[in-house]
């Protein structure tokens, strides 16, 4: 199971500050197990956003948000509500946010930080990758993870090493920033790239202390002896 934690509500509100109408999507996979998803969590978020004067155009739960074909089929009946929203707020791991951004023509804000993989990476993974940096900024990078797709992990734009859209490290690999640019251009949101992104908080890369206190972790430690 992939472990996620809530982003502080202040951070979410800051991300949504220029947006009025929000559509909420939740993954019924890992987040339900990690207590960062499920019907109640999504309903609570709706209530909080409405208190802040936002309009929630709809809530949708999808079994595995790591599967683009599944997302495509599940959003069809909800197209109007999604189109009507300024952006989408996603409760899933980084992979679910990436696959949502690949399918939806909207900015997808992560509501969670992906902190560690307690097992496999995505129940049903496609090309998306998440390195559990614990500080998800996928909404600033068009749903492309700069942490796992750019070898230099650049957050404020590409290096000078890219050539014909390919990466300095491998002419077969797309430059992450080429993809970021194209994704944001497609949804006419290149303005997002103007913001300065401060350095990542690497202390979040350690498995959370909370997790280390769980029974599961303790059992594992026991077995080691």
């Amino acid at each position: 199971m992939i472990l996620t934690e809530f982003k502080p509500i202040e951070e979410i509100l800051l991300k949504l500050k220029d947006e009025k109408k929000i559509f909420i999507i939740g993954c019924c996979g890992c987040p339900e197990g990690a207590n960062t998803g499920g019907r109640k969590v999504l309903a609570d978020m709706k209530e909080q956003l409405e208190k802040e004067g936002k309009v929630v155009t709809g809530i949708l739960e999808i079994d595995f948000l790591c599967q683009k074909a599944l997302i495509r089929s599940r959003i069809k009946p909800r197209t109007d509500e999604i189109n009507n929203a300024d952006s989408v707020l996603i409760f899933s791991c980084g992979i679910g946010v990436q696959s949502s951004a690949a399918v939806l023509n909207k900015i997808c804000h992560p509501a969670l930080n992906t902190t560690t993989f307690g097992g496999i990476t995505g129940m049903w993974q496609g090309t998306e990758r998440c390195d559990t940096c614990g500080n998800c900024i996928l909404d600033c990078t068009g749903g492309i993870c700069p942490y796992s797709s750019c070898p230099k992990k650049l957050e404020n734009g590409p290096c000078a090493g890219q050539s014909k859209g390919k990466c300095e490290t491998d002419p077969e690999k797309d430059c992450a920033w080429e993809l970021i640019y194209k994704n944001l251009k497609k949804i006419d949101r290149l303005d997002i790239l103007d913001q300065f992104i401060p350095p990542r908080d690497y202390s979040k890369i350690l498995p959370p202390a909370k997790l280390r206190k769980t029974k599961l972790w303790a059992l594992d430690e026991e077995e080691m002896i």
């Binding site: 404020n156 734009g157 590409p158 000078a160 890219q162 050539s163 014909k164 859209g165 430059c175 920033w177 080429e178 640019y181 194209k182 251009k185 290149l190 790239l193 103007d194 300065f196």
Partner: peptide, 26 residues
Amino acid sequence: AVVNPGADTEASYELQIIKMKKKVSQ
């Protein structure tokens, strides 16, 4: 800081300009 006037795709050229502006603002 540095900038590359010879970036060879639309994306990389535009990103050079965007990044240059960010560098100025920092």
